[in-house]
């Protein structure tokens, strides 16, 4: 029985990622409505959207190829795979050793690669524009992500996610400049990677500003549902990754099934707070012009590098 615990935990986590992701998205949207003084459709609205989309017929352009149809599945699969790896409710995940943090970044990259291709597949101007911008932003975010990773991995001398989280979790709470810098850089890249304001606006369909929406403009029905769902999971995963890396206290170190409910609760609390932060940022900031984004990401990179440097200079 005990041997099966890790597998059970793994299954729990996958389920959590799958089904809690829309909730987090709903929470963010609802919070945003409140801060902007609008009436929100409720925290559960994303679930309703998904159900509606799944039951709808698909409208497909004549020249959409198999790439277009294959992409939603792949996107969904790769994101879920990523969700199975990061330690959200426990450090001791069996699948965790499958991929370290570098491989995790690559998992997201697969999805992005295909969604960008799908954007170009139907042959509209919007799709291509979205792909082009998405790929550019991703390229610029990548070094910053890696730098952040690097700084964190310096502590545990590992790139394995579980090992990192375990190492930090075993320490008492500590404040180190490098970690602070890394955390700030991570938040900035999180905004870019998950397509939030000020980099992208997830709710707009205005041609000049949309990036992610531009690529998926031609999707409908269950394809759209999968894409949307994957997007929500991505937000969820990124947020919980941040939580795991920078405030891992509360994530159980062992593989005891009994710790899980508490862990889920703690995690939920942290996520709710982080989401509130995101909402504040989105409300307070305006969407940037597209060619300001390099500066934004450059800042993220700079901060991450400063983190790394301060580790060598101040903490050794």
């Amino acid at each position: 029985m005990r041997e099966a615990f890790p597998l059970l935990i793994e299954a729990c986590q996958i389920a959590l990622v799958l089904f809690a992701a829309p909730l987090l998205a709903g929470w963010v949207r609802a919070l945003k409505c409140w801060t902007q003084g609008r009436t929100s459709p409720g925290v559960l609205q994303p679930y309703r959207n998904l159900i509606k989309l799944f039951s709808k017929d698909i409208v497909l352009a004549h020249n959409a190829s198999w790439v277009f149809r294959f992409t939603p599945y792949l996107l969904f699969g790769s994101v879920l795979m990523a969700g199975a790896i990061i330690p959200i409710i426990s450090v001791d995940l069996p699948l965790s050793a499958t991929a370290d943090i570098i491989a995790l970044v690559a998992l997201f990259a697969i999805g992005r690669f295909f969604i960008a291709l799908a954007g170009m597949d139907v042959g509209t101007a919007f799709g291509g524009m979205g792909s082009s911008r998405e790929m550019m932003i991703a390229s610029l975010a990548e070094p910053a992500v890696l730098m952040t990773t690097f700084t964190v991995s310096l502590f545990g001398h590992t790139t394995s996610l579980s090992e990192m989280v375990r190492f930090i979790g075993q320490q008492n709470f500590f404040l180190s400049p490098s970690m602070v810098f890394a955390a700030i850089a991570f938040v900035l890249t999180l905004l870019a990677e998950t397509g939030r304001v000020p980099v992208d606006n997830p709710v707009t369909h205005l041609e000049l500003t949309m990036i992610h929406e531009g690529m998926i403009l031609e999707y409908s029905g269950r394809y759209l549902a999968l894409v949307e769902w994957a997007g929500m999971m991505k937000l969820f995963i990124f947020t919980s990754l941040g939580v795991a890396l920078f405030v891992p206290w509360g994530i159980p170190q062992g593989d005891d099934l009994m710790d899980i409910p508490l862990a889920v609760l703690i995690m939920a609390g942290k996520l709710a707070l982080v989401a509130a932060g995101i909402v504040l940022a989105e409300t307070g900031l305006a969407k940037m012009r597209i060619f300001r984004v390099p500066e934004f990401l450059g800042t993220a990179f700079l901060i991450a590098t400063l983190g790394m440097l301060s580790h060598f200079i101040l903490e050794m």
Partner: peptide, 13 residues
């Protein structure tokens, strides 16, 4: 230190 299991990734996805 670090690990990567390509077959698992392939299988998982």
């Amino acid at each position: 230190r670090a690990s990567y299991a390509a077959p698992m990734v392939l299988l998982g996805i």
